[in-house]
Structures are given as C-alpha cells and as structure tokens.
Amino acid sequence: NQASVVANQLIPINTALTLVMMRSEVVTPVGIPAEDIPRLVGMQVNRAVPLGTTLMPDMVKGYA
C-alpha cells in the first residue's frame, strides 16, 4: 500500500510546509504520495490542516 502525507501537527492556513510538519502513513482515502514530501517543502497550505489529517492535492497551493 502506498503511504500518503499526513499532518504531524496543526498546520495553520497559509503556512509554508517544513519536513517536521509532515509524516508518511498508509491511510484511506489516499492523499498526496509520501514520495512528494521533498517537493512539498516550502509550499503553502490554503486551509488549516488539523493534526493527523491526510494532505490532499487541493490543500496545497501550486501542488495540483
């Protein structure tokens, strides 16, 4: 099963992502693939992302 990117903490709206904010986990539904974590660093979320939430492509500005 493919691992997805999951929020390791509450990520406030418009926050630029850092490695410490994300972890990989096998979840359903599948979100952004864990191998894209390096690409996500520095990108901003367009909404608040609660701890444990799977990051979906539409949550990250410029990802989709």
Rank of each mutant, 00 (worst) to 15 (best):
N1W: 11
N1D: 15
Q2H: 14
Q2Y: 07
Q2W: 07
Q2A: 14
A3W: 04
A3E: 15
A3V: 09
A3H: 10
S4C: 03
S4Y: 13
S4Q: 05
V5P: 02
V5A: 06
V5S: 07
V5L: 05
V5M: 02
V6Y: 14
V6D: 00
V6C: 02
V6L: 13
A7P: 02
A7G: 05
N8I: 15
N8P: 02
N8Q: 12
Q9R: 05
Q9W: 11
L10M: 10
L10I: 14
I11Y: 01
I11L: 10
I11D: 00
P12Y: 08
P12W: 09
P12Q: 11
P12F: 13
I13C: 04
I13S: 08
I13A: 06
N14A: 06
N14P: 03
T15P: 01
T15A: 05
T15R: 05
A16K: 05
A16N: 04
A16G: 07
A16S: 09
L17R: 00
L17I: 10
L17W: 00
L17D: 01
L17H: 00
L17P: 01
T18V: 05
T18E: 02
T18A: 03
T18H: 03
T18M: 09
L19D: 02
L19R: 15
L19T: 08
V20N: 06
V20R: 09
V20Q: 13
V20A: 09
V20C: 09
M21F: 13
M21G: 02
M21A: 03
M21Y: 10
M21R: 11
M22V: 11
M22H: 00
R23D: 02
R23Y: 12
R23F: 04
R23V: 12
R23G: 04
S24V: 10
S24L: 12
S24H: 15
E25W: 06
E25T: 05
E25N: 09
E25R: 03
E25I: 03
E25H: 08
V26P: 13
V26Q: 13
V26A: 10
V27G: 03
V27D: 09
V27P: 03
T28I: 05
T28L: 04
T28C: 13
T28W: 03
P29W: 10
P29V: 10
P29F: 15
V30H: 09
V30E: 15
V30D: 14
V30S: 11
G31H: 02
G31F: 02
G31M: 05
G31R: 04
I32L: 06
I32Q: 01
I32M: 05
A34V: 05
A34D: 13
A34K: 06
A34C: 13
E35S: 10
E35G: 09
D36C: 15
D36R: 05
D36M: 10
D36I: 15
D36S: 12
D36V: 07
I37S: 14
I37A: 15
I37F: 08
I37R: 07
P38F: 12
P38K: 07
P38R: 08
R39C: 03
R39E: 03
R39G: 12
R39A: 05
R39H: 08
L40C: 03
L40H: 01
L40A: 02
L40Q: 01
V41Y: 11
V41K: 06
V41Q: 15
V41C: 03
V41P: 05
V41A: 06
V41T: 08
V41G: 11
G42A: 11
G42P: 01
M43W: 11
M43T: 09
Q44P: 05
Q44M: 14
V45F: 01
V45A: 15
V45Q: 00
V45Y: 00
V45R: 00
V45C: 03
N46E: 10
N46A: 04
N46Y: 08
N46G: 08
R47V: 12
R47N: 05
R47Y: 12
A48M: 14
A48W: 03
V49T: 06
V49K: 01
V49I: 13
P50L: 14
L51V: 06
L51C: 15
G52L: 08
G52S: 14
G52K: 08
G52Q: 11
G52P: 00
T53F: 14
T53K: 12
T53Q: 14
T53V: 08
T54Q: 04
T54M: 08
T54G: 05
T54S: 08
T54W: 02
T54P: 05
L55Q: 00
L55R: 00
L55H: 01
L55F: 08
M56C: 14
M56R: 12
P57I: 06
P57V: 06
P57G: 07
P57K: 12
P57E: 04
P57Q: 12
P57R: 11
D58L: 08
D58V: 07
D58K: 04
M59T: 05
M59W: 11
M59H: 12
M59L: 06
M59I: 07
M59C: 03
M59E: 05
V60M: 13
V60N: 00
V60Y: 01
K61W: 09
K61R: 11
K61M: 07
G62T: 08
G62Q: 15
G62N: 08
G62M: 12
Y63E: 03
Y63P: 03
Y63W: 13
Y63A: 12
Y63T: 04
Y63K: 02
Y63G: 06
A64Q: 14
A64K: 11
A64W: 02
A64Y: 02
A64L: 09
A64G: 13
A64D: 06
